[in-house]
Amino acid sequence: MTTAPLADRAWTPREITADEAGGRGLADHLGDLGADGLTELLTEHKALVFRGFGVTPESVEPVLDRLLPNRLPYVHGNSPRTRVKGNLYTSTEYPQRFTISMHNELNYARRWPARLAFYCETAAESGGATPVVDGALWLASLDAEVREAFAGGIRYVQNLHDGYGLGKSWQDTFETDDRAEVERFLAESEAEWEWGPDGIRVSQLRQAVTTHPVTGAEVWFNQADQWHPAGLGDETAKELYDILPPEEFPQYVTFADGTPIPDAYVTQIRDRGLELAVDVDWRVGDVLLIDNVLTAHGRRPFEGSRRILVAMSD
């Protein structure tokens, strides 16, 4: 693992090697730990890297069964990915030349997974690390002005097309083509929605921070920088603004009362999360387990082929 050059860094994931486990396979080692032991270890360290266990595509299923006993579908997910098998997916299929900024999975939804597990099937020729960041450190790194501005929460807006348009369709997003099922999901999510001739518009009011249910740690917990055009970079943002007004973007975010979030706030959030992040540099067979509240993650640019699989659980 490598770290960004930040003098006051106070956290790094816990690495567990096959030698430390006495040479046992990872599934067996996790069985020795037990479900409670694994939970305690993850809560204490926030992220765990299992290295040198020789996990293969054929042997990853029993490992995931130990790490994530109740794997969840990626319903309402906004990033492009492919279902590999069951509730096991490819990691975000975003162009490899771009950085994916720090975020907690599905934290814009009413319910989010408690854990994520990543498995390295193919490591990139260069780059491609998965950066992880302590959400409490990220929150503390932001200027008081920014933290105060977000205290009232934020509003996420999605414009999901019916099969033709920018971004994901509502069918892909909700993994169904049944409108009634989508409406049931959104009602349970305390979201607002409106069907139009070309798809559906979804609006969700959410908090910008949350507290961990066990440790009580307060963490930065929103995707304002990923949903705001300023977080995409000047060139991409300009292209969007040239095509559409903000209220028609595939996804957009404002403060809770609908007022715009300043670009400078968004770039500060994005940049400080990435500056604080610790890079998990992948080797084939590595497994990364993270607490999805205490820890945010992202992706560094890469060259060559890279295949990281991900699963999530409650």
Rank of each mutant, 00 (worst) to 15 (best):
T90E: 08
L186H: 15
P131Q: 12
D279I: 10
L42A: 09
L232P: 00
A18C: 15
H45S: 11
T254G: 04
P57C: 10
T259I: 05
V310Y: 04
E247A: 11
D242W: 06
L26S: 11
D178L: 08
E15M: 12
A10E: 10
Y89I: 12
L274E: 11
G258V: 00
T3E: 13
R184C: 03
E192I: 00
F302L: 07
L139P: 04
D134Q: 12
D234L: 07
A27R: 12
W170C: 06
E275N: 14
G23P: 03
E239C: 06
R307H: 13
H161Y: 13
R9S: 14
L137V: 14
D178E: 13
L6K: 13
Y94D: 04
M102C: 01
I200E: 01
K238H: 12
G52H: 09
Y265K: 04
P301T: 02
E15I: 15
T267F: 04
T130N: 10
T99V: 10
Y156W: 02
V133C: 01
P62E: 10
R147C: 04
D134M: 11
V280S: 06
A109E: 12
E145W: 12
H29C: 07
R155G: 02
Q204E: 11
A151R: 14
M1V: 11
D28K: 01
E190L: 15
D8T: 03
N292F: 04
I308Q: 07
L276H: 02
N70H: 13
E190D: 15
V310N: 04
S101H: 04
A277L: 06
V253R: 00
L244D: 02
L139N: 06
D198V: 14
E188V: 08
P80N: 10
L33V: 13
A230N: 00
P260H: 01
D242S: 14
A124P: 02
R14P: 03
F221S: 09
V84T: 03
D314G: 09
R306A: 06
A208R: 08
L142M: 04
D281H: 10
G199W: 03
T99Y: 02
T99P: 04
R81P: 07
Y89D: 08
Y252G: 09
L41D: 03
H45M: 12
V84P: 01
H29T: 13
Q207G: 07
Y74S: 14
D242Q: 14
I308N: 02
A124E: 08
L274I: 07
D225H: 13
